[in-house]
Amino acid sequence: MKVLSIKGLEAWYGRTKVLHGLDVHLDEGGFTAVLGANGAGKTTLLRAISGLVTVKGDIEFAGKSLVGVAPEDIVRRGIAHVPVGRGTFLALTVEENLRAGAYLLRNKADIAAAIERAYSYFPRLRERRMQQAGTLSGGEQQMLAISRGIVSRPRLLLLDEPSVGLAPLIVEEIFEIMKQIRTVDGVSILVVEQNATLALKVADHAFVMETGRLVLSGTAAEIANDDGIRRSYLGY
């Protein structure tokens, strides 16, 4: 089953068109990576899904259109978006960041359970729960960002470059936990990544973008094993 179906998606910043008719389909419960060079439009794709840019075309989530829906309401439909740069509330404590993430849960017990669940994935955050989030290390802030995304109990989690600026070991740890979140909680994940090697190792599907267009899509294994693709689009 498809959780997200995008057809003929175009997106604008003012009068500049940056997505030129994209078709993307995401499997429910899948782990999909979006790859592509700088400026390809990966971030814009996520912003389009979240209602942060002007779009034309179809975006259907769980059978309903998202076009024209405000970002605040798109979260309510079950899509969590962790923006590039992590979007941490720096002056709030770790726990307050998570409470903010769980803003839409109305029931105290649900909030506590969701936060507890995040701590079980990232025990380091529990140790630092009263610490000001701005004082966390980059890796911890990324853990917090992912946690902030999952405490709203989304059906689809969008992550924009979770690996930026982190040591390889931490990145692997974080991706490993993202895999668990996918399997255990059944959250579908769409991750934008510059680190293609790693993304293709953990994702089951991937697509490659170039200047606002989709140039390739397939299973992660197909893309990783095709030397031609690797050389021409992924540059390694």
């Binding site: 979240s50 942060l52 970002p71 605040e72 979260v75 309510r76 969590a80 978006h81 962790v82 923006p83 979007g87 941490t88 509330f89 720096l90 002056a91 709030l92 307050e96 409470r99 903010a100 993430g101 803003y103 839409l104 902030r148 709203s152």
Partner: peptide
């Protein structure tokens, strides 16, 4: 209170706040 927290979050990082559903 959750609303108090939402006000502070919205002031600190409006984009992130909107993305967690805060108006």
């Amino acid at each position: 209170t959750p609303v108090g927290l939402a006000i502070r979050a919205g002031a600190q990082n409006p984009l992130s706040a909107r993305l967690v559903g805060i108006r």
